[in-house]
């Protein structure tokens, strides 16, 4: 159950996309998200879909793996589809009693669903092909300009990478404590909502205690290695653009250009 969470998960493989500079991938995600909002048109979504599938193909990440990330948002997806289908005014296709389904409603619902699915697939492709460390390195560097207005970019990036790093550890810990309490006869599955909430206490208390203990240990270990924040800190593997990164930027701009052209000439 807990293992289904794929947010921030990394899928190890050896592909061009895996080796790209994280800044390129962050930029790609941003551009991709923007492109999805260019308009609700079959051509726009078509090109976005083809582009995404191509990227997934190149990345060698199984499609099944990316689709698993959708499980988490399936409720949200259903909600937006159902509301759009039934609550949009327009040309009525059929009606049962007071509920009516309109052509516009169906179009909007489908468009919304497609957009949401692409959005999540696109961004999970980035996290699946980028190690958490690379990701935060890339973010820190890309947002470096914010330092001018005294945003602690390095600290935020460090917090992010620690948080990401600890997700699997805490999941494992939860699993372990759950089993340990089950071995003592705890029951997490049956009963009403109040009984279930109460059953969480033997799980949550040890989990929080262990998280706090880990945090203390980590802080001590970092201080013992003279960590004192971002100022004057150098990197063992500083990010450097390579030829393939320039090429990737070119592809991204070409994609954006095509999308804008479609928007201007085909859609309008």
């Amino acid at each position: 159950m807990l293992r289904d969470i794929t947010i921030g998960q990394y899928y190890p493989s050896d592909s061009v996309i895996h080796r790209l500079d994280p800044r390129v991938k962050l930029f790609w995600t941003l551009i991709y998200i923007i492109s999805l909002f260019l308009g609700q048109n079959i051509f726009i979504y078509g090109i976005a879909g083809v582009f995404l599938l191509m990227c997934i193909r190149i990345s060698k990440v199984p499609v099944k793996f990316i689709l698993r990330g959708l499980k988490a948002v399936i409720m949200l997806l259903m909600f937006s589809v159902i509301f759009n289908i039934f609550l949009t005014d327009g040309e009525v296709i059929f009606r049962i009693w007071k509920i009516k389904v309109t052509r516009e409603g169906v179009v909007i619902a489908v468009a919304m669903a497609v957009r949401l699915i692409f959005l999540i697939m696109g961004s999970s492709l980035m996290t699946l092909t980028t190690t958490p460390n690379d990701l935060t390195d890339g973010l820190e560097k890309s947002l470096g300009f914010l330092k001018i207005i005294h945003v602690p970019v390095h600290e935020i990036a460090m917090m992010m990478s620690i948080a990401l790093r600890f997700i699997p550890i805490l999941i494992e810990e939860t699993d372990k404590i759950m089993k340990a309490q089950q071995a003592r006869g705890a029951d997490f599955e049956t009963g009403g909502i109040i009984k279930k909430a109460k059953a969480m206490v033997p799980l949550l208390v040890p989990l929080f205690i262990s998280a706090i203990r880990r945090a203390y240990d980590l802080a001590t270990a970092m201080e013992a290695k003279c960590y004192k924040g971002g100022a004057g800190r150098t990197k063992m593997k500083p990010l450097k653009y390579k030829r393939r990164d320039a090429l990737a930027y070119l592809v991204i701009f070409a994609y954006l250009f095509i999308m804008i052209m479609v928007k201007v000439y085909v859609v309008a």
């Binding site: 404590i177 071995a183 003592r184 006869g185 705890a186 033997p202 040890p206 205690i209 262990s210």
Partner: peptide
Amino acid sequence: VFQYPEHQLFETDVFTDVCFGPKN
């Protein structure tokens, strides 16, 4: 008894914690 079983202790005192199993 799991590895590092003390990580599963959660009650406010030892006696109540030991009561958890039989209570269940």
